[in-house]
Design a protein around this nucleic acid. Sequence first.
DNA 1: TATTTAACTTTGAAAAACAAAGCACTTTTA
DNA 2: TAAAAGTGCTTTGTTTTTCAAAGTTAAATA
Lengths: 98, 98
Amino acid sequence: MKNPIADLNKIFDSRIRLGVMSVLVVNDEIGFNDLKQMLELTDGNLASHLNTLEQADFIKVHKGFIGRKTSTTYSITELGKQAFKAHLDALEKMIKKL
Amino acid sequence: MKNPIADLNKIFDSRIRLGVMSVLVVNDEIGFNDLKQMLELTDGNLASHLNTLEQADFIKVHKGFIGRKTSTTYSITELGKQAFKAHLDALEKMIKKL
DNA sequence: TATTTAACTTTGAAAAACAAAGCACTTTTA
DNA sequence: TAAAAGTGCTTTGTTTTTCAAAGTTAAATA
């Protein structure tokens, strides 16, 4: 039997980053505050996980305005999509044996 | 939109514990060394994760003998099966939106 | 008898997660 | 117009988690 966890992506061990990605897969763009409320996180905690995801080039940040108010939104990158899909495939392989 | 990560079980955030459970779902019983080799872990690391799983009553330990040599094996409990399934369901719900 | 193996426990270090506070900027409210 | 509040962070420091390495006990083997 092969090591079943070898293909899991370490970045997605975190439930929060997993949550962010799963939200971004279905929402083209989402704001900082929406994410914060959805995942029930403090600012700092969310910001640092978003940062990890951005460092990995799995998400992109968009700084813009709504009217004249600043607004930061996030979206998934192609690389992020691929990595997330690969992770899910690895997960599925692990558990499909059920 | 509801918090997508609220129903994930914290115990299964760890890839290693996830791996142990996925192995135990398909193998009625497995030995310490087999697990160790399969998941490519050091003794101490595996032992501590097994301990966490045992504390939660998700796995059971069987101390026995092969001939007169000790042999420790592990199996999943009913509670463990339920918790693992619930976790997988929560995961699936998160990503089925794909 | 010396070495090896199994299955741990203990120790300690490194990494990760997290909350809280601070901050720069803008907008809203009194 | 002065104070309050919101946005999106960064910084700081604590707590939690992870992990490797070494030590341990008992039995097996050479």
